[in-house]
């Protein structure tokens, strides 16, 4: 029982960077913008947050720095694609390649630095519930923040007027523009929000989860987050489910090794990537599901005249 509790709790922690990055990207994509630069943004967010926390000694400055870095990174992407009408696929790739280089460059002085592990915040009463308590309510603060983000994004997209406008822009920027909504400005905000969340996901990884900086430490999580959005057919609740499933797959290797299972380490490490491919195949097989759920204008540039 204790092992199961430990696995579930660890899956939630491991899935949290994915929750941040994927929910952010979900909002971006709902506005019709496909930002493939999540991986690079997470890396730059991670290193900025880590460096700031290591220098100032305050993790919350680090959190802020990581988010600001995410905004700046996605700002580059927004200028390229929304102002200069560059191809979104190519620009997103460029953002990731740039982020990989920039983060490696910035992170060099911090490679042997360690941060103190952050104590978990036990929610009074709730954390006493058997099984559920330790699984859900004995986490570091950012895990709770990610739940608040989920609630906020769900409410925003489906219950608020602004969310409706954002979704309508993702479906048909032409109509939204004709009604008088500022398409480019809203796409900007959605892209910057996605960047901030990707940065936050990176921060969680470097400052709270590990907590250290290793070059390339995001290790494909940004790409997995992109795949999660497709897997979730652009719905926040399914993003959460998917993120924790992947969190579980990620930590499987540690528990397998702990349990003395002799499976090749490299095979276990490749599981999250193989799982991503398998779920993508599973979900994309049915073309109609994708076409019904994907924002119609996703990845298509729009320029109001």
């Amino acid at each position: 029982m204790d092992t199961i509790v430990a696995i579930l709790a660890a899956a939630i922690v491991a899935g949290t960077p994915l929750v941040f990055a994927a929910l952010g990207e979900l909002v971006t994509e709902k506005a019709g913008v496909l930002n493939l630069g999540v991986e690079g943004t997470m890396l730059v967010g991670a290193v900025s947050g880590f460096a700031t926390a290591a220098t100032t000694g305050n993790v919350w400055f680090g959190v802020l720095a990581g988010m600001v870095a995410g905004v700046l990174m996605s700002g580059i992407f927004a200028i390229l694609t929304l102002n200069l009408m560059a191809n979104q696929v190519a620009s997103g790739l460029a953002l990731t390649l740039f982020g990989v280089g920039l983060s490696a460059f910035m992170g060099k002085p911090y490679e042997s630095v360690t941060l103190a592990a952050q104590a978990p915040l036990e929610i009074p009463l709730l954390s006493q519930i058997p099984v559920l308590g330790p699984v859900l309510f004995k986490h570091q603060i950012l895990v709770y923040v990610s739940w608040a983000l989920f609630a906020g994004v769900s409410w925003f997209l489906y219950k608020s007027r602004a969310g409706l406008v954002l979704r309508s822009i993702g479906e048909s920027p032409e109509s939204a523009h004709a009604i008088g909504y500022p398409v480019i400005r809203i796409r900007y905000l959605a892209t910057l929000f996605g960047g901030a969340m990707a940065g936050l996901g990176g921060v969680h990884l470097a400052e709270f989860y590990t907590p250290l900086w290793v070059e390339g430490m995001v290790a494909g999580r940004g790409w997995i987050a992109l795949a999660l959005v497709v897997f979730a057919t652009w719905r926040p609740a399914r993003v959460m489910v998917g993120a924790y499933l992947f969190g579980g797959v990620t930590i499987a290797q540690f528990f397998a090794q702990g349990a003395g299972v002799t499976i090749t380490a490299q095979f276990l490490s490749s599981l999250p990537y193989l799982a991503t491919i398998i779920v993508l195949v599973f979900i994309s097989r049915d073309m109609a599901t994708i076409r019904l759920n994907a924002p119609v204008s996703l990845g298509r540039p729009y320029r109001p005249d």
């Binding site: 620009s91 460029a94 390649l97 460059f105």
Partner: peptide
């Protein structure tokens, strides 16, 4: 200087290219 500068320059080159390409169509 860290050799990671290479990646930084590579990324910048692609950014500037994508940005400059705006002048092809506009």
């Amino acid at each position: 200087l860290p050799s990671a500068m290479t990646g930084l320059f590579q990324g910048m080159l692609l950014f500037f290219l994508l940005g400059s390409d705006v002048f092809i169509s506009y």
